[in-house]
Design a binder for these strands. Structure first.
Lengths: 232, 232
DNA sequence: CTGGTCACCTGTGCT
DNA sequence: AAGCACAGGTGACCA
């Protein structure tokens, strides 16, 4: 029961460990584990769903059962299999540690990484077709796992599926020479002396007017004034 | 532990009490508590989610912590806060008593009514945009809570179903003296000082002007480039 | 099996 | 200009 509780909540040791590895803010480990100390487990080319809004990565069953410990400890099987799963730590190429929840979904009969995965996708800029690489330490004493991603070439970036998004490269901080502006939907709405508008209102959508790509939300919010009109 | 269990399951006394108040089937109490004996606590305009398949009502945190007793008894705090929550009884305008489970969701840091809520929604015919009113007895000896709903006027009553989402009366909530401006992070980024256009641009959407209280939210997710343009 | 309930999770808008 | 509140979700569980 105690072990189960430790799986559920972060323990003090966990936090300490995380803190140590992460160091300050962004936290690169002082000494990332070198590649020669790693042994490949398997790779997967991520699907659109893997990097989409499902916020999960499907781990191919063969590799999951072969390499990942969900059913290892017999006494922990009940907890791991039915429900909560386990938390796994993966170190990336920069030494940063990522913690994912790893569990089995009975409904889809599949192994998945859930909590924490979307953050990884976002921060790595992972895109459908990219490949993630799982490996582990060659030192059996360390049970450290590793995760890295091989991005597809973005130069020609012929997106197969419907996801264009010309990867803007890690769009660095805005060059200081550039004027400070405020953008809304990619359009400058303030700054630069509030330049005059040359163009009339145009609202473009991808799927036509009926889809609108907009979701309605009730805004009878307590104190927010009724936004019925935009004015610029 | 016993008390916790009583909170979890309906006790015999509970059922008896319910039965007495409800009378037969639809059950109106012989003497509903008159309005003058009630004191308003707060209101909420229900969202689509509140009346949808999620079967829960999010209670705005400020009101929840101010008016609802989840954290009252220090010894019960652990049980109430972490997990199970408590059962609360609310009397409606007809004297019928509704029992809801009220609890705190750690993951979303929010207070919710869960069990029993969907029945209320169904039987009251509650729709997104309707307002529910919470009040309590002015007799401090009675700790009775009340719940009522103010349906939005569907003047033509055209809405049978199909998600029309009527909307409450137009928000009067405007500091009349204040200039109309656009704020971002609370900072005016567009308005009188930075203004070339004199005319506010009104954006009307598919369901007509009464839908203007519905906020548009970009749902293009990760995909979609800069999402077209929104120039005014 | 089905549908209701529960305890989670996350992106986004508002402050 | 960063945090929080919450609308909108998920799978698991159970009656």
């Amino acid at each position: 029961a105690e072990i189960v509780d430790m799986l559920r909540k972060h323990t003090y040791a966990d936090e300490l460990h995380q803190g140590l590895r992460r160091g300050r803010g962004m936290g690169a480990r002082a000494q990332p584990t070198p590649a020669w100390a790693r042994s490949l487990l398997f790779e997967k080319a991520v699907t659109p769903s893997d990097v989409g809004k499902l916020n999960r990565l499907v781990v191919p069953k063969q590799h999951a059962e072969k390499h990942f410990p969900l059913k290892r400890a017999p006494e922990a099987t009940a907890a791991a299999t039915s429900g909560k799963g386990v938390l796994l730590n993966f170190e990336d190429g920069e030494g940063k540690v990522w913690r994912f929840r790893y569990s089995y979904w009975n409904s889809s009969q599949s192994y998945v990484l859930t909590k924490g995965w979307s953050r990884f996708v976002r921060e790595k800029g992972l895109r459908a077709g990219d490949t993630i690489v799982f490996s582990h330490s060659t030192y059996s004493s360390e049970k450290q796992l590793f995760i890295d991603c091989k991005k597809t070439k973005t130069t020609t970036a012929a997106t197969t599926d419907g996801a264009p998004v010309p990867v803007p490269a890690p769009a660095e901080k805005k060059p200081s020479t550039e004027a400070r502006v405020v953008r809304l939907f990619g359009v400058v709405i303030a700054g630069d002396g509030c330049q005059k508008r040359a163009r009339p209102v145009e609202i473009a959508f991808e799927h036509g007017p009926q889809e609108l790509l907009m979701k309605k939300q009730c805004v009878a919010h307590h104190r927010s004034p009724a936004l019925g009109a935009f004015l610029l």
